[in-house]
């Protein structure tokens, strides 16, 4: 029988145990004549019973509670106006990540601040996969592939200093008396409790802050520094000039989330993100004007490039550590 043609008044009487004997018998005869009727009856009974329990949703003020949540959310607006001279492969990295290349002055600074001969050194290296490092103070550091982290065994006692080589996402526990310092290249990032990332290449450091506030300064000149707040990105350029801008790029942490999202993104910008994700040096040898809207989740480079080849008619060469783009 059609669900819509069922005798709902009779059914409700049954559900409320108000059916007279003759009504009950008539109804039971109907059920017996329909193979799926018993299941349907059980389904309707469930809906009827739960419709009484649905009352509890009346006590939720959805619109009011959304206003409360919305008022507490800080919405990031894309900056878009200020372009900072950054190496192509890094130009769209934002927000919460720190990358350090080279164990320079910071290495010396961290490892020699106490008696060198009595200190053990711990090194974590992410060789094949993104690695999560749990620090003695409860902070958590995610290392991108090819990155490493160094700290001393008195971390959390006399200091909270680490050296990062490569790229990392830091979730630093707050409320600690010691500042948390990350030495990377020729810069130092200092925080008390926050979430941020650092990326450094060719002398340019980019720090992106997801939560809290961090200070970025040249490692040899703490008088020159910038405060980077939540949803901002700070840069130290090769000449040690400090810059700050609002906004965090959506693909900044794709290396951790394994998700690349493009929404009407200029193809050259998308290629920058893709090259960074796969740790390739990008070389664009053709004019690229197309825009791309797509989502790639945990997909290999070859698969992504196949798709882009079809969309834009480009030719890609991924030989060695490069990603070359031609018509």
């Amino acid at each position: 029988m059609d669900v819509l043609k069922m005798p709902y008044k009779a059914i409700i009487k049954m559900l409320e145990n108000k059916a007279k004997n003759i009504e009950y018998q008539t109804y039971m005869n109907q059920i017996n004549n329909e193979s799926n009727r018993t299941d349907e009856q059980a389904r309707i009974r469930k809906i009827w019973n739960e419709s009484e329990n649905a009352r509890k949703f009346e006590q939720i003020n959805l619109a009011g509670d959304w206003k409360t949540v919305r008022s507490r959310m800080r919405v990031t607006m894309s900056a878009g106006s200020e372009q900072i001279a950054f190496p192509m492969v890094l130009s769209r990295i934002a927000a919460v990540l720190i990358i350090a290349v080279g164990l320079g002055y910071g290495f010396y600074k961290v490892l020699t601040s106490q008696k060198f001969q009595t200190v053990k050194i711990y090194t974590y290296r992410a060789d094949r996969n993104v690695e999560e490092v749990y620090m003695p103070d409860g902070s958590v550091i995610n290392l991108n592939v090819g990155s490493s982290l160094v700290y001393r065994d008195d971390f959390n006692r006399s200091s909270r200093d680490v050296i990062l080589e490569g790229e990392g996402l830091f979730d630093v526990v707050p409320g600690h008396t010691l500042p948390f310092r990350v030495y990377t290249g020729e810069s130092v990032v200092e925080v008390t409790g926050t979430t941020f990332s650092i990326y450094e290449k060719d002398g340019v450091v980019k720090v992106s802050v997801i939560d809290g506030t961090v200070t970025l300064s040249p490692v040899d000149n703490s008088n020159s520094q910038i405060q980077i707040s939540k949803n901002q990105s700070g840069y130290m350029l090769a000449n040690k000039e400090l810059k700050i801008r609002d906004g965090i790029d959506v693909n900044n942490l794709s290396w951790k989330t394994r998700l690349l999202i493009f929404d009407e993104t200029p193809l050259d910008s998308a290629l920058v993100d893709i090259a960074h994700y796969f740790r390739k040096n990008l070389s664009i040898e053709a004019e690229v004007t197309e825009k791309v809207t797509a989502e790639f989740e945990n997909q290999p480079l070859s698969e992504i490039l196949d798709e882009l080849e079809q969309v834009a008619g480009l030719v890609f060469d991924t030989t060695g550590g490069s990603l070359s783009v031609r018509r």
């Binding site: 959304w66 949540v69 919305r70 959310m73 919405v75 990031t76 959506v250 989330t257 998700l259 999202i261 929404d263 809207t293 797509a294 989502e295 790639f296 989740e297 997909q299 798709e307």
Partner: peptide, 24 residues
């Protein structure tokens, strides 16, 4: 390409407030 896969997750990550309100 997975343009429409995990649309809610994509919307969340995009920061689109209208989509976030819808999720809420």
């Amino acid at each position: 390409m997975k343009n429409y896969k995990n649309k809610e997750i994509s919307s969340l990550k995009s920061g689109d407030i209208a989509a976030y309100e819808s999720l809420f």
